[in-house]
């Protein structure tokens, strides 16, 4: 923006001095921050390296030959983890959204459906994920029913979908509830049906708001794919376990951990970025 007329702005001596001081203060705080970071890292490093067990830890957890020997298998196993969450994520989104929508329908005809949705979220949010994986993974095949899957990977993914579907349903529901009732009133007053109001007015706003918490749940899901190892799926944790059992060396676990971090950190940063952006938008100011 430019002002049309008025005096030209020449910075006063007072303002120049102020800016000089501010610059100097900024430099000083940057210096303090880097000095304290370096001091902390050095101290932590010295503490670990001088600990009595450091030699043994180095040998059993940080052995380079064991790392290179095990890493191809661990990496191959990690492929299974990626497949699992790539299959689970879309299913979780669909189930979560459906359950959340059913819970928002107020018509009495849908009471049984609504009750079922409440029961589902209560049950599957309440059971620890690992326990659920056991129950589905060993319980479903034990039923011996025709057509039930027996592949541990399918069973493991099913358990993850059931568990996370309940969490994600609650996230969606919070998003739906966060859209102001006046938006619904405005849509209905234009003659839109309940479903049309949901689809064109409520959900687009709700989903945008819940993307950061959803991504957060997905970071958690990516890690929890390792739990499926307990059913005998040879994914990355299992591969690491196999190697360490043979060679009495834990380095492959560190390799697996590095892989999970490499996968989740970018997603975490992306979540931060989205949250920051929506914050900025809010600050930019909307009236309603």
């Amino acid at each position: 923006m430019t002002t049309s007329t008025g005096p030209a702005w020449v910075k006063s001596e007072r303002q120049l001095e102020r800016e000089r001081l501010r610059r100097r203060a900024g430099l000083r705080s940057a210096g303090v921050a880097s000095a304290s970071t370096i001091a902390f890292l050095v101290l932590a490093g010295v503490l670990i390296v001088t600990s009595p067990g450091w030699d043994r830890v180095q040998r059993t957890f940080l052995s380079w030959p064991d790392f290179t020997a095990s890493f191809p298998d661990v990496l191959r196993g990690f492929g299974e983890n990626i497949v699992m969450f790539l299959i689970a994520e879309p299913l979780i989104l669909v189930i979560g959204l459906l359950v959340a929508m059913v819970r928002s329908v107020k018509a009495p005809v849908f009471f049984p459906l609504r009750a079922l949705a409440v029961l589902y979220t209560d049950l599957f949010r309440g059971v620890p994920t690992l326990l659920l994986i056991f129950l589905v993974g060993f319980g479903v095949p034990a039923l011996d029913l025709q057509g039930t899957p027996s592949d541990p990977m399918v069973l493991g993914v099913s358990a993850l979908v059931l568990s996370y579907g309940a969490y994600v349903a609650e996230v969606f529901r919070a998003g739906i509830d966060s859209v102001h009732p006046s938006q619904r009133a405005a849509a209905r007053s234009l003659g839109l049906s309940h479903l049309q109001t949901m689809r064109f007015v409520v959900l687009p706003q709700a989903i945008r708001r819940v993307i950061p918490p959803l991504l957060n749940d997905f970071i958690s899901l990516q890690k929890d794919t390792a739990l499926v190892a307990t059913l005998g799926v040879v994914e990355t944790l299992r591969q690491a376990q196999i190697y360490s059992a043979e060679h009495f060396n834990y380095t492959p676990y560190v390799g697996a951990a590095v892989l999970f971090i490499a996968l989740t950190v970018p997603l975490a940063r992306f979540t931060d970025y989205l949250a920051r952006r929506s914050e900025q938008r809010r600050e930019a100011g909307s009236t309603t």
């Binding site: 006046s182 009133a185 003659g191 839109l192 049309q196 064109f200 687009p204 009236t287 309603t288």
Partner: peptide
Amino acid sequence: FQSYNLFPHMSVLDNITLAPTRVH
């Protein structure tokens, strides 16, 4: 309404055409 209640995720044009296209 007193508080306008426009749909914030839609352009002005989409706000106006929503009911005609979807309802009518």
